[in-house]
Amino acid sequence: MCDTCGCNITSGNAHLVTNDGKLAQTPDGKSAVFVLKSLLTENDYQAIHNREHFDKNAVLAINLMSSPGSGKTALLEATIEALGDEFSIAVIEGDLETENDADRIRAKGVPAVQISTGSACHLDAYMVHDAVHKLDLETLDIVFIENVGNLVCPASFDLGQHRNVTLLSVTEGDDKPAKYPVIFRAADVVLQTKSDLLEVLDDFNPAKAEQCLRNLASEAPMLPLSARRNIEIDAWLTWLRDEVATQAERVAKHEVTKPAIQPDGAALHLAEKGQSA
């Protein structure tokens, strides 16, 4: 996504800029310029800036995405209960309206900043930046960004997070990854939430849900758990501890990480990785 070094020119689009050079005339004599700029660039720059804030303070930033009501806040409550003594945690809450979720988090003794998006269906890097400045990052180990409940738009906006976590509750149907490929493809880990309800929901097949995820070429682990009943959350806590440790190692080595999949073309992503390596 860099227009200076040309790393945004890939095998799929190179013909546009190599055939007639950078400038070309159209048949009716008008000037045309071929640019190949990734859209959302402004947001992406802000996201890079946010990531620098997190890295400077050795904070791990996790973006939680899912449908409304799949248990993002309940997961955070259970996570804070389990790891609150081990790590210093803060939460950025995105909702259209109300402070309800932030209040639930604060009741657990953890700082929470509520972003009320009005009618916007996703968080962007600017909103997260404002929220980040209301947190004392120096004292924190993990910042969870609870995105607006929506399986569509949040997938398109980089917020500066290091990892994406996508929740799939068993009440939603096991073919959700096939229906919403963009958001599930972006997940570094998929949590199958409300798994205690599986015994009464005979139409959700965990193996089929995982197959739908693999069909998206995703190697992300799929972890079943129930946050409310505190069942099987250990695998999630282990994943999180590993990520905190890895983030600390990266920060010590001045390395930067992003979620495995960025909504920007795999070739672009590879070019960027090559550049930062």
């Binding site: 990734s38 963009v182 672009l268």
Partner: peptide
Amino acid sequence: DEMLLAAI
């Protein structure tokens, strides 16, 4: 998965 401004 790209979204590129290609030409103006």
